[in-house]
Each structure stands twice: as C-alpha cells, then as structure tokens.
Computed example of a mutant assay.
Amino acid sequence: MWNPPELQNMVLLLFLTVICWMSVDSESAGSVQRNISAVEGQTVSLPCEAPNQETIRVVEWTRPDLGENPDVLSYKYGHFDRDNHRSYKNRVDLKNVKDGDVSLIMKNVAFRDSGTYKCFIAQGGESNNIKLISSISLSVVPPGDPGGQGGGGGHVGLSVGLTVAALVVVGGAVVMFLRHQQKKKSPPPPPNSDPDLDEPLNQFDS
C-alpha cells in the first residue's frame, strides 16, 4: 500500500499530465475534428470551411503520414499546384472556393486512402498566416462492411471531453482517499476525565 506522500505525488503527476496534454493539443483547439468512414469506390467529402468572408488566398490539404510529400491538394492565388502526391492525381478537388467551402472531394477512395487529413487556410493579404481549420480521420472499408455505413462519423471532441472528465474523476477520487487515510491515522481525541476518579481514595475510609 502506498503511503500518503506517494499518493500525493501521483495526484500531482496526474494533473501535470492533463495540463501537458491540453497544451500539446492547443494547435487544433479552434479546428473541427471529425471521423468519417467510407466504402471503397465511393466519392467522399472531407469538410473544411473558411472561418470568415475574407478572400481565400491559400488552401492546403495534407496527410502527414505520406512522408516526404504530404500534400494531397494545394491551391494558391487562384491556381492549383500540380506537384502533389501522385496517388491523388486526378482524384481530388475543392468543393467551392468562392463560397468559402474548401471541402476536399475525393473520388474512387481505396483502403490506402485511410488516414488523417488536415485542412489549412490563409485569407486576406497575408498568405503566410495559414491556419489549421479542420482535421479529418478517414477510414475506408471494403464493400459490405457495416463500418462503412456511418458516413458522417462522430466528433473527436466528444472522446477528448470524456478523457478529461475521467482524469478529473480519478484525481478527485485519489484526493478523497488521501483525506480518508489521513483521518484514519490521526490520533484519537483524549478521553473525557471522570470527576469521580479524581477524588481522593480515602473518601471511603470515613
């Protein structure tokens, strides 16, 4: 059984872990995160919309696990960059740049297309001020697989919120346990003195 100092260190480590996790995830704090499933051969739309009405200068859809060339689609100043990953050639497009909807349209998806896609947008006059807008996890399954019927998927934010809630509950339980242990180990209060016992023993001699 751990002693109270060791449990206190565990509580401190737990909350430091939560803080570190939140700081690491701060990059995508203002972005949309979703899971999307699709069946092989389908056309899918990975959502991404500009946060305001300013002119869209740059759009970049990337997939980090592609290695040296993670670019899936690049749009800069009204033109598409053709130097993207070869596996997406002639299969991807943007939905409607003029209306601010730069969702990635991907045709004839295959299992190898499964992965995490990130959408970056730069608006206004500064093309170098590019921001992460959405992060989409795409899962492609064979035809007939029930896992591919969901389409819309769920929000990753829900699982994140549940994780944080679980950590808080665990931390609170440990703190309550510590307090209980300290109460058990505290010395009992002194017994109340009996005035009859304090009288002289010779009171019965008379």
Rank of each mutant, 00 (worst) to 15 (best):
residue 161 G to D: 09
residue 181 Q to C: 04
residue 123 Q to G: 07
residue 94 L to E: 07
residue 149 Q to N: 14
residue 148 G to M: 04
residue 115 G to P: 02
residue 112 R to V: 11
residue 151 G to P: 00
residue 146 P to R: 07
residue 115 G to L: 03
residue 118 K to A: 13
residue 140 V to A: 07
residue 100 G to A: 11
residue 103 S to D: 10
residue 162 L to V: 12
residue 120 F to H: 15
residue 182 Q to M: 12
residue 152 G to N: 14
residue 112 R to A: 11
residue 135 S to H: 00
residue 169 V to T: 13
residue 107 K to F: 00
residue 176 M to Q: 12
residue 160 V to S: 10
residue 162 L to P: 00
residue 148 G to Y: 05
residue 94 L to H: 08
residue 120 F to G: 03
residue 141 V to G: 00
residue 139 S to C: 02
residue 104 L to H: 02
residue 180 H to C: 06
residue 179 R to F: 13
residue 161 G to P: 01
residue 115 G to H: 06
residue 176 M to D: 10
residue 152 G to K: 07
residue 171 G to R: 03
residue 133 I to K: 01
residue 137 S to D: 12
residue 147 G to H: 15
residue 102 V to L: 07
residue 118 K to F: 06
residue 171 G to N: 01
residue 163 T to A: 10
residue 176 M to A: 13
residue 136 I to L: 10
residue 168 V to G: 04
residue 132 L to E: 03
residue 132 L to I: 05
residue 138 L to Q: 04
residue 117 Y to E: 06
residue 112 R to G: 13
residue 94 L to D: 05
residue 101 D to Y: 05
residue 172 G to T: 05
residue 116 T to N: 12
residue 170 V to T: 10
residue 155 H to S: 09
residue 94 L to T: 04
residue 107 K to R: 15
residue 135 S to Q: 14
residue 127 S to C: 06
residue 127 S to K: 13
residue 181 Q to G: 05
residue 109 V to C: 05
